[in-house]
Design a protein around this nucleic acid. Structure first.
Length: 275
DNA sequence: CGCTGACCCTGACGGC
DNA sequence: TGCCGTCAGGGTCAGC
């Protein structure tokens, strides 16, 4: 469900309602997420103040005294602001009850998400090997050229690898490759500096625009207030296999790359080194 | 070390 | 109406 723009949208929505609030209760209805939710989470967090809320990769981080609550939404996770009057629904696995009757409610049908207590973010095994943020200056052509030397990995899997760069999931990888005119199966050691420049700008551009639209709702993405995002209307190739390319009119093709579906235009997206 | 595929889980959808 | 196969925005991990 959520890629970087969706998590960013949720974090931005939560910030004003959560920052500075005190944790009054933790209700765990189902602890079997990607990793088991600690049974003593209540004791750890009780009466602690949420000092800060921010995003790293696709993780949401709630900073409190002496540590952090690290959350990931997996494919189907939702994190919404609720009140005590809101009914508990199917797959509402976790409530973080805050002062002023604010409830942060985690819902996740597939339970691929996680909720972990982490004392030191920098050294945590889930975070310490992550690559740079895609919207940072660290994510630049020189960095990618250096990483791609001698690697035959195909470009789509490369940009979706969080050790290379974080936050680029299947939707935005697909869209950025189309925008940059690069075939998703192109080996990374054949990509020129000019092509890296084009691709990196395309990734930054698609992520920024998606954040501006409040994320992409394909099926069930909602922000912290339960509203959808509107970037799906701007998608050029994702979920459009078999339809006409907006650029050239050719039929868009579908491939499976690393168990993920990949839509592309074999006329506009080429394998060669020319631009 | 790097890459591939299996796997975690529920739900929606299409074909029969 | 139901059963079955397939697919879905994520990421880890074993095995080669």
């Amino acid at each position: 469900m959520p890629e970087l723009p969706e998590v960013e949208t949720i974090v931005n929505g939560l910030k004003p309602h959560v920052t500075g609030k005190r944790i009054e209760d933790i209700i765990i209805r189902n602890s079997s997420l990607r990793w088991p939710v600690a049974h003593n989470l209540h004791e750890i967090l009780y009466k602690k103040n949420i000092e800060q809320v921010y995003r790293r990769a696709k993780y949401l981080i709630f900073k409190v005294k002496n540590g952090n609550l690290l959350m990931h939404l997996g494919m189907s996770g939702q994190l919404c602001l609720k009140t005590p009057q809101d009914l508990v629904k199917k797959h509402d696995h976790l409530d973080i009850v805050l002062s002023d009757n604010v409830i942060l409610r985690y819902n996740d049908a597939r339970r691929f998400g996680s909720c972990l207590w982490v004392e030191d973010i920098a050294s945590h095994f889930l975070l310490k090997n992550l690559g740079p943020e895609p919207l940072s200056d660290e994510f630049n052509p020189e960095y990618m050229v250096k990483l791609a030397i001698n690697k035959k990995t195909v470009i789509k899997q490369f940009i979706m690898n969080s050790k290379v760069v974080v936050g680029v999931g299947n939707i935005y990888a697909t869209e950025a490759l189309f925008a940059a005119g690069l075939h998703p199966l192109k080996p990374v050691n054949t990509i020129t500096v000019a092509q890296w420049k084009l691709l990196i700008s395309a990734i930054k551009d698609v992520l920024v625009k998606a954040i501006e639209k409040g994320g992409t709702t394909l099926k069930d993405f909602v922000n912290s207030t339960g509203k959808p995002g509107y970037f799906s209307q701007a998608l050029k190739v994702y979920q459009r296999a078999g339809l006409d390319c907006f650029n050239c009119g050719n039929t868009l093709k579908l491939l499976r790359i690393g168990q993920r579906s990949s839509v592309f235009c074999d006329n506009c997206q080429n394998m060669s080194a020319d631009l």
